[in-house]
Amino acid sequence: MTEDMTGASWEQGSQWYDSEAGPLVRPYAMTGGRTQPGPAGARFDLIALVTLDPGAPAVDGDTALGPEHRTLIDLCRTETQSVAELAAGADLPVGVVRVLLGDLLELGCVTVTRPVPPAQLPDERILREVIAGLRAL
């Protein structure tokens, strides 16, 4: 354990961490000061579903990706997750996750889909009538 000039202690080789203040890397540093996702028209609602693209280029040696990008890729590797789940799993603010997902979308690493809005789903009454019609055959 070492102490810095402020008296905060941290283990050498670990992330900078102050037990009272939390992580010392601020969100704007993770996103390079950006607040909006890159691709125009990309919408990252909390319920948008993010999937790792199986045809994605290998990003293991890509130095342009930070550790936060890699964390999101690892979380998507096992299953499709919503933006909210990714933010919770990566322990990052949603705004940061949206910007990082924009980067991954531009690189072709992930695909983003939005669930069908309830207004676009078929009416239950119509489905019941179809079932009744099929039974009558």
Rank of each mutant, 00 (worst) to 15 (best):
C109L: 15
E79A: 09
A90G: 03
G38S: 03
V112D: 02
L104D: 04
G38W: 09
Q36R: 14
L101Q: 09
L72H: 01
L107E: 12
P67M: 08
P39I: 01
T111D: 09
Q81Y: 03
P118L: 01
L134P: 03
V130N: 04
R128Y: 09
E68L: 05
L100W: 07
D18C: 05
D4K: 11
A58S: 13
A40V: 08
T2S: 13
W10H: 14
V116D: 01
P39W: 07
Q15P: 14
G66S: 05
V59T: 11
P115Y: 04
T51A: 14
L107M: 14
V97Y: 09
I131A: 08
A136M: 12
A136I: 06
L137D: 11
W16H: 10
P117Y: 00
V99R: 08
G133I: 07
A56S: 10
G61P: 04
D74N: 03
T111V: 08
V25T: 14
H69D: 05
V96D: 01
G108S: 06
G38E: 05
L127P: 02
A90W: 02
G89M: 00
E11I: 11
P27V: 00
D91K: 11
A136T: 04
I131R: 11
C76P: 03
T78A: 08
V110L: 10
V94N: 03
Q36D: 15
T2A: 14
A48E: 04
A42W: 12
V59E: 12
A21G: 08
T63Q: 15
Y28D: 15
A64T: 15
A64F: 07
F44D: 01
G108E: 03
L72R: 02
V99Q: 07
P122Y: 00
T80A: 06
P93R: 09
W10R: 15
